[in-house]
Amino acid sequence: MSRRAFQVLPGFNLTLGYTLFYLCIIVLIPLSAVFLKTSQLGLSQFWDVVTTPRVVASYKLSFGASLLAAAINAVFGLGLAWALVRYSFPGKKLVDALIDLPFALPTAVAGIALTALYAPNGWLGSALEPLGIKVAFTPLGVLVSLVFIGLPFVVRTVQPILEDLDTELEEAAASLGARRWQTFRHVTLPILLPALLTGFALAFARAVGEYGSVIFIAGNIPMVSEITPLMIITKLEQYDYTGATAIAVVMLLFSFVLLLAINGLQAWTEKATGRNR
């Protein structure tokens, strides 16, 4: 406390006070409403609501598709980041700028555009139909839109780390007789791994909560292609506020766990690469 008297810069009380005030009224107090509302429900009632077969099917789809989408993004996102950082090719600047499209394009727009593409009469859907692959209005459609939404997370967490890498490490590996693949596997990949996992986790976290881009292409068939956020909407439309809130609590608890994991991963990235976020 006595140290604060020596503070040279002004504005500590004002800025911290305002920050806490705004954080409380916009985020913390409204969020606490979810937990208070659910606490009115007994534990066994709560358990019954969040484990009805239709809701459980939605968890399986939401978490399964999100994991798979994040994994696909980790592979192709690493490839894209590598190509953007290490190679020169025509149109690179444009591709680099458009990577952030999923951050900038409203999710509803992405949703109807992907549906138009993958519907049986769409450009891609009509090509896949003869092969017996149905994308729109199936769980596969959910996967496609979650890949769309998650891609920039992986590219944008891996890209800066790749850019900051010096050539020396790889040169040393090569001069010691390592083949290019061995150098990648034993030198470069371990440095990239924390960032790659962070990108994976960010893409996964975003995908689990995603709503706008998914509901158009999913078809929303009960037990088959309903995602968990849609279950909350469905309950709300039936004025079942307690039911909606109980599912929201499950999602929130899961997000908190992921948030902690991501913070840990980011600390690891900083330690592994010695750079600040």
Partner: peptide
Amino acid sequence: LITLIDLPFSVSPVVAGLIYVLVFGAQ
């Protein structure tokens, strides 16, 4: 504090809407 500021990013948009319904909605 930094983690709490990040919180809205990890909350599903649907849940974000729901919390205001619980605070300001008819019930």
